[in-house]
């Protein structure tokens, strides 16, 4: 029996895959306009390279593999936005105090932290606000790991970063978020 070979049917792409691809993109880049752009670029790239489609994978798998590249490209772009895209330092980077807390960044006790507040809508809004203040790279990795709950290995593979790289980003993002929530919620 001949092996089944998939064929491309671009006229049906939107109906069949737009939502799937959009969802795939939006949980990674956390921005629906950007996700929409990535999906559109994926379809365009798919049309352009349709002649290279060998039919070994399904149409959807093939489109997802294109979108994956778009997500990595986006991550690399925001990762290379040096300078403006860094979080504030919390620890001395060198000298005798290397690795110690910088005085004005030392955690303070919270006046206003109660378990029952966790479901509070205002708190969620403040949290979203603090996350949105993170440089994009930090927000993206933090959210993939913490909000979308991806495995470490999967994030590393998808963004082409090492695990230690990932933990540095998570650590900086969390320290920054802690400080933001402290200033704007817990001790406000």
């Amino acid at each position: 029996m001949p092996e089944e070979v998939s064929t491309l049917n671009p006229n049906k792409w939107i109906d069949n895959y737009a939502d799937y691809l959009f969802n795939y993109a939006v949980v990674r880049v956390n921005d629906s306009d950007l996700a929409k752009d990535l999906v559109q670029e994926t379809f365009f790239a798919g049309l352009k390279s349709a002649k290279n489609f060998e039919g070994k994978a399904t149409e959807r798998t093939w489109l997802v593999s294109i979108l994956k590249r778009k997500v990595i490209d986006h991550y690399r772009k925001i990762n290379s936005n040096k300078g403006k895209a860094e979080v504030r330092m919390n620890f001395y980077a060198d000298g005798d105090n290397e690795g110690n807390w910088i005085e004005e960044r030392v955690p303070q006790s919270w006046d206003n932290a109660s378990e029952k507040d966790i479901e509070n809508e205002e708190l969620k809004t403040q949290l979203d606000l603090c996350i949105s203040k993170l440089p994009e790279k930090y927000a993206m990795v933090f959210k993939m790991k913490t909000i979308q709950e991806f495995e470490t290995e999967e994030i590393c593979k998808e963004l082409d970063i090492t695990a230690s790289n990932l933990w540095v980003i998570i650590h900086r993002a969390r320290t920054q978020l802690r400080k933001c929530m402290e200033d704007n919620w817990f001790n406000n």
Binding site: A18, D19, F22, N23, V26, V27, S32, A35, K36, V39, P107, W110, A113, E115, I118, E119, L123, K124, L127, D128, T146, I147, Q148, E149, R174, L177, R178, M181
Partner: peptide, 23 residues
Amino acid sequence: QNVFLSSMYKGQAKSCKQIKHCL
């Protein structure tokens, strides 16, 4: 404090997963 923040993030994750993203 980090343990407290984690439970807060968990809450956020839960409400986030209930949203279905569609065009």
